[in-house]
């Protein structure tokens, strides 16, 4: 039994999500190979080789994979799939984009967004925005899985696996990369931050969002998140959205400011270790999941909290 894990990276740096996907693969059991598909991504291959539990790293370094197009990367994975019992990727936007293609081309179902490994082919995954947890068992010869990274602890980096080049080049796709607009964010990455401070619609404006949330996040060294309502209202960029269809986070400390706590938002943060909620409405559903609730005017309480830390 050998498992292929697709590395998440930007051609320069290996994302932490990969070390978490490797942790899930280790729980499934068997040898683990990591595939780094990109262009000019040699350093990523070396970083992947250090991950604990990895037996071999395959590096497909070619312009065809530079922008991680689902078409070319899935073709590469299908080319390599023959020897593998499992093909695994973190459920990042890249993993979600690519892996269902791999599954379809192999004529198997994908198990999406697993949160626990019960057995080699048996997994837990949330459905209905986390309102229910399904245990599913795959029977296919090749099991295709995406992993909710926040549900697994990253493996260490004390390993030294051999790195092998893969020569296969995918055919020209009928899609071309045009541009990428990176959201500017000074703090830590939302998906992996130890502390997250999120703001909701009650902040009332983009200016107030920045005025209240940013100093608190800076003081705590926290990443900034937002509810869907705050994102839709234009207070925060889309990739700050925490929830069923945004990012799913599980930090040590999650501070929800002016967020009522719709089930779609709770789906993205309710597995945080400690949750603090600050809102003026004592009946807001967010208080039902909060370890510590503080009811009052957030425009007074948040600056006071920032000051007190």
């Amino acid at each position: 039994m050998t498992i292929l894990v697709l590395a998440e990276h930007d051609n320069a740096t290996l994302a932490v999500a990969t070390a978490k996907a490797v942790a899930a693969a280790r729980a499934m059991g068997g040898d683990i190979h990591v595939l780094v598909a990109g262009a000019g991504c040699g350093a990523v291959g070396e970083a992947a080789a250090k991950l604990d539990g990895v037996g071999k790293v395959l590096v497909a370094d070619n312009d065809a994979y530079e922008h991680h197009l689902a078409e070319t990367v899935s073709e590469l994975i299908v080319h390599l799939a023959g020897g593998y019992s499992h093909i695994v990727a973190a459920a990042t936007t890249t993993g979600k984009n690519t892996m269902p293609r791999v599954a379809a081309l192999l004529d198997v179902m994908q198990v999406s967004d697993i949160t626990a490994v019960v057995g080699p082919k048996t997994f837990e995954r949330p459905v209905y925005a986390g309102a229910a947890i399904q245990t599913v068992e795959a029977s296919a010869e090749t099991v295709v899985v995406t992993v909710r990274a926040s549900a697994f602890d990253a493996v260490g980096d004390g390993g030294s696996a051999p790195v092998e080049a893969v020569d296969f080049v995918a055919g020209a796709p009928k899609v071309r990369f045009v541009s990428r607009d990176a959201a500017v964010s000074a703090g830590p990455e939302l998906a992996n931050a130890r502390i997250v401070v999120s703001g909701g619609r009650a902040l009332g404006s983009e200016d107030k969002f920045n005025e209240m949330i940013k100093p608190l996040a800076e003081k705590l060294g926290a990443a900034i998140g937002a509810s869907r309502a705050a994102v839709d209202a234009g207070y925060a960029p889309n990739d700050w959205q925490v929830g069923q269809t945004g990012k799913v986070v599980a930090p040590d400390l999650y501070i929800a400011v002016g967020i009522s706590g719709a089930i779609q938002h709770l789906a993205g943060m309710k597995n945080s270790k400690v949750i603090v909620a600050i809102d003026k409405d004592p009946d807001a559903p967010i208080f039902a999941v909060a370890d510590y609730g503080l009811v009052g005017d957030l425009f007074a309480l948040v600056p006071e909290l920032t000051e007190a830390l």
Partner: peptide, 11 residues
Amino acid sequence: EVDGGLETLEL
């Protein structure tokens, strides 16, 4: 909408 921002593709 992708992690870390926006990406534009031509299909």
